[in-house]
């Protein structure tokens, strides 16, 4: 069975500076992957290359189909790092923004489409903003509306680029709980860039560490327990492991963790 994402020998460079070098991996259905790495390490670029937003060298397959021939975009939900419009006068309601996430752009809006829009807004607790102008909302509220846009087509794969940076503590918890449920209950595959390894570590099943090359790709347990990884990644790995152990006062790995002192 083909992977949800198959990347083979990806290379990408902005002018002469290489950003990605020979990156290959396969994301399987149901994976919840935390994409981590230093600033400028190529995480966002990798997501853009996977989605065809940047043209790199190498091969990308989505749901078994080469990227150039891929048409089932409704299977993918994408949330970018930055809110799309700095244009303060873009007169569009939050519900219209969410509507953009549905497949097809027929001139007439159907009743079922609106139902799906409101259901997605309910999920991200933005239903009360439906009629408000998008740019009148706070950055955090906008981010939740954009998450609803990513979810409205009920995607099988969610690609999220540091989605929680603008959110307050309560919204962040809601956000990661929702992603966790989508992953465990609906089987949604998630690829998420994050620096928030502690909070999101509870849900993540695999880590992918990118710093131009694919430095590490494996399960959370392998990441935390591998001496090799700790040596290779230095302080960052230690920081991430510490985060995973300390956040919320409990170890996300439970009894299987060899680092914790279990009685």
């Amino acid at each position: 069975m083909p992977g949800i994402i198959e990347a083979r020998h990806l290379h990408f460079a902005y002018t002469r500076t290489p950003v990605l070098e020979d990156v290959s991996f396969t994301v399987d259905a149901g994976d919840y992957i935390g994409l981590i790495g230093p600033n400028g390490g190529g995480k966002t670029t990798l997501l853009k290359v996977l989605l065809g937003l940047e043209k790199g060298q190498g091969e990308v397959k989505l749901f078994g189909t080469p990227l150039g021939e891929f048409t089932d975009w409704h299977k993918i939900g994408y949330l970018a790092q930055k809110s799309p419009v700095a244009q303060s006068r873009f007169p569009i309601a939050a519900e219209e923004v969410v509507l953009m996430g549905l497949p097809g752009f027929s001139a007439r809006i159907k009743r079922e489409e609106l139902k799906e829009v409101y259901a997605a807004m309910q999920q991200t607790r933005t239903r009360q903003f439906a009629g408000k102008i998008f740019n009148d909302l706070s950055i955090g509220q906008q981010q939740r509306v954009l998450l609803a846009r990513a979810l409205v087509s009920k995607p099988q794969l969610l690609i999220l680029d540091e989605p929680s940076t603008a959110l307050d503590a309560g919204s962040r918890e809601m956000f990661f709980d929702l992603l966790g449920k989508l992953n465990t209950q609906n089987g949604t595959t998630i690829l998420l860039i994050t620096h928030d390894t502690g909070e999101v570590g509870k849900y993540i099943s695999k880590f992918m560490y990118v710093d131009k090359n694919l430095v590490f790709f494996g399960t959370k347990e392998e990441f935390c327990h591998s001496q090799k990884v700790a040596e290779k990644l230095g302080p960052f790995a230690q920081h991430t492991i510490d985060h995973l152990h300390n956040t919320h006062g409990h170890c996300p790995l439970g009894a299987s963790c060899r680092e914790c002192k279990h009685d």
Binding site: K48, L51, G52, L53, T71, W73, H74, I76, Y78, A80, P84, V85, F90, I92, E96, V97, L99, M100, G101, P103, F105, S106, A107, I109, R149
Partner: peptide, 21 residues
């Protein structure tokens, strides 16, 4: 009239519009 939603989506967010095909 024919491409209203598509045009608005493209104006609003070109990257996301790309990921809708």
């Amino acid at each position: 009239v024919s491409f209203y939603r598509l045009l608005v989506a493209t104006c609003f967010d070109e990257s996301f519009a790309h990921t809708r095909g």
